[in-house]
Amino acid sequence: MIPAAFDYVRASSLTQAIELLRDNPDGAKLVAGGHTLLPALKLRLAAPELLIDIRSVAEIKGIEIGETHVKIGALTTHSELSASEPLNNVFPIFRETARLLADPQVRNRGTIGGSLANADPAADWPAVVLALGAQLEIVGATGRRTVPAEDFFLDIFTTTLAPDEILASIQIPKPKTGTRYAYRKIRHPASGFAVVGVAIAVRMLDGVVDEASIGITGATNHAFVGKEAAEFLTGKALTRDNIDEAARMLSENTECLSDRYAPAEYRANLVRVELGRALLELSQ
């Protein structure tokens, strides 16, 4: 319940935070909302020597609706994502997802950057940024780089972030008119994390799918893009048969995780059912 002792610095800029990371290659951890790190520290599952609090770093805060892209600062809390009218006017999936994420108190404090960087295999935002084709802006000692969300998640709790890099923002290309979204999730009754979560973006044109994109979380070691199913749907009408086929395809191509609560077959079933239901919602 009480973390092992550590030192603490409140960084005022990205540069300062990165320097601190670089100077403490083994023992430093970033903290923003703290809702992933602090529970681990309290159970002494982690014992960093230094905590770098980046909540005061203004340059990675806020939501900007640009001409071509929407830019979300990594420090944006789940509640802010849910509350932002400009953001949800463009991407209503943020409110839909935030509503299903953890609980109100956690949403008031936890950040999207923390959630993505932590890469919990059952977190919600990874599925959403995948479905939205987001680019993740990463800042490090050697400069800035942008990584497509699809390449960001590598394994359970593992991303492409180097130890001295910070996830700065999420940049999402603005959608074509008529794109619709859905996020569906089966919550673990205790943790609130996704047993399986499905985020989809679909644009219909002349009665057939013009573009489709699918992000899945909870099912495997890390969130992933359901490419094959999306490609299958493209150019087709969202009929019951096509939906079922896409859902079956995604489910069968996914090597699901198994745990005490949910065996792999159950997760695979949820991938099928939840994708099917999400598509059905959008077909109506």
């Binding site: 159970l43 673990h188 009754p189 205790a190 943790s191 005490r260 609560y261």
Partner: peptide, 15 residues
């Protein structure tokens, strides 16, 4: 295996 309230599912109001 159910060592904390993260995995031991005490019902919430919505359950």
């Amino acid at each position: 295996l159910t060592g904390s309230l993260l995995d031991y599912a005490v019902p919430r109001a919505e359950h």
